[in-house]
Design a protein around this nucleic acid. Structure first.
Length: 465
RNA sequence: GCUCCCUUCGUCUAGAGGCCUAGGACACGGCCCUCUCAAGGCUGUAACACCGGUUCGAAUCCGGUAGGGAGCGCCA
């Protein structure tokens, strides 16, 4: 049977990097094996699921490029099917109605806890066929009482659970609605999921699900429980520690392939390779190479990878995100070629596109003022003379490109017996207002002759005064 | 409390009993390159949680201890 994986988020919050990595591994595994990747929205918790969260998850996955081959399927649209399976289980005596009240269950739990036992349902309605008037029953699955359940997990190996540790879990609430663990089983079965790849917080749910699958006459799928991603401080990802929407990474100026590259290397590696294109990931990824231990999120490494990906990207790809970042800073630019040229000139000096935009403002507006410290350091009688000379020669230049500009700057400095920097820095100060920019020839070339000269003249007027 | 899972540099990882004087990457420091900032190159600091055992030999196998995590809901 061909490989089918699924990503099954519940829309009770945003899609964060933990979820994204799970989705990535599912997607990679399916791609690698020519299988199909299914998206399922687990929205049975009517209270907490929201339309906005669903949309947000969909947007996040689209941005990341993790396109589902099938779905999204919604569990809320499958209630009839769940009902059908519950009735089947009931008819076969594999499930039963339990008329315990919440109060009774609470009392039971309290007693067990008091005795130092693991709280679990004691099966008191398991063999009863009567009803209790006035109580809407729940339906419980008849879990085997003895023996063991063996989960053959691809990442954790063989994990053994005693059935005695498991209780009869509720599969339908008293209002008739199905519960999570049951829906998962029915869905994975109906959708012919061959590989369940999910966070290892679900490892403890697996024996119950496996038992239900067996009761339904199905062979369990292959399980792969991925280690968690922790916050930078090594603690669980929380709202205060890095648990942000993946869309926030987009807005902060990260490339999706960089985020994915970062995530794929959490719990997985391929020799000494650090940088992967999406294609390389698909080719190299294997779920059996995944680690067992949790990993901490490291923002510096993500930033480094983002820069590496920006430097390797097709320059055209940087145009749209750069335009968007500039817009956030109040700059509108519809000249694609210009944006591409700026990105090319700036990408080795920015970790993110947001930073690139911030560093590139001077390409769109003259400096409001000049870095005072730098002026004191670089602006002298000699440099002013060189600036004037350079301006005059640049004005007469036959053509306008980095090579021609470089020649002029070089000659003027040499003629004055100065190092290139003695002229480059004043020039940079004049056109950028600061001391940081791409090489001065490239900067002037990008700025254009007219604007460059205008800025130099303006600066000279100021500094001569 | 009970069950299950995890443990190599600060962080991500390589490592399948001798190839380990433990390799790579991020970060950090130094040097080089250099018109600035970067990028790049070279280089340095830094780890097998602990205790026992098996073995000629253990980061690797076994047992225990400690620490961390998850689950034990009419949440997912």
């Amino acid at each position: 049977m061909s490989v089918r994986t699924r990503f099954a988020p519940s829309p009770t919050g945003f899609l964060h990097i933990g979820g994204l990595r799970t989705a990535l591994f599912c997607w990679l595994y399916a791609r690698r094996h020519g299988g199909r990747f299914v998206l399922r929205i687990e929205d049975t918790d009517l209270e907490r699921s929201t339309e906005a969260a669903i949309q947000q998850i969909l947007d996040g996955m689209e941005w990341a490029g993790l396109v589902a081959d099938e779905g999204p399927f919604y569990q809320t649209r499958r209630f009839d099917r769940y009902r059908e399976v519950i009735d089947e289980l009931l008819a076969e005596g594999k499930a039963y109605r339990c008329y315990c009240t919440k109060e009774e269950l609470d009392a039971l739990r309290a007693e067990q806890l008091a005795r130092g036992e693991k709280p679990r349902y004691d099966g008191r309605w398991r063999d009863r066929t009567d009803a209790r008037p006035g109580v809407q029953p729940v339906v419980r699955f008849k879990n085997p009482t003895g023996g063991e359940v063996v989960v053959e997990d691809v990442v954790h190996g063989r994990v053994v659970f005693q059935n005695a540790e498991l209780d009869d879990l509720i599969i339908a609430r008293s209002d008739g609605s199905p519960t999570y663990n049951f829906c998962v089983v029915v869905d994975d079965m109906d959708m012919n999921v061959t590989h369940v790849i999910r966070g290892d917080d679900h490892l403890n749910n697996t024996p119950r699900q496996q038992n239900m699958l067996v009761a339904l006459g199905r062979k369990p799928p292959v399980y792969a429980h991925l280690p968690m991603i922790l916050g930078a401080d090594g603690a669980k990802l929380s709202k205060r520690h890095g648990a942000v929407s993946v869309l926030q990474y987009r807005d902060e100026g990260y490339l999706p392939e960089a985020l994915l590259n970062y995530l794929v290397r959490l719990g997985w590696s391929h020799g000494d390779q650090e940088i992967f294109s999406i294609e390389e990931m698909v080719r190299a990824f294997d779920i059996t190479d995944v680690n067992k231990s949790a990993s901490a999120f490291n923002a510096e490494k993500l930033a480094w990878l983002n820069q590496q990906h920006m430097m390797r990207a097709e320059p055209r790809r940087l145009v749209e995100p750069l335009r968007w970042q500039l817009q956030q800073l109040g700059i509108a630019c519809d000249d694609d070629a210009h944006l591409e040229a700026i990105a090319l000139a700036q990408r080795e000096r920015a970790k993110t596109l947001k930073e690139m935009a911030a560093n590139s403002l001077f390409f769109f507006q003259p400096p409001a003022d000049y870095d005072e410290k730098a002026v004191r350091k670089h602006i002298t009688v000699e440099s002013i003379a060189m600036l004037a000379e350079a301006a005059a020669r640049l004005d007469r230049l036959d053509g306008w490109d980095a090579a021609l500009i470089h020649a002029v700057v070089n000659e003027v400095a040499t003629a004055a017996g100065a190092a290139l920097g003695k002229l480059a820095q004043p020039l940079r100060l004049a056109v950028c207002g600061g001391t940081v920019s791409p090489p001065i020839d490239a900067t002037l070339a990008l700025l254009g002759r007219e604007e460059s000269l205008r800025r130099i003249e303006r600066a000279l007027a100021r500094w001569r005064a």
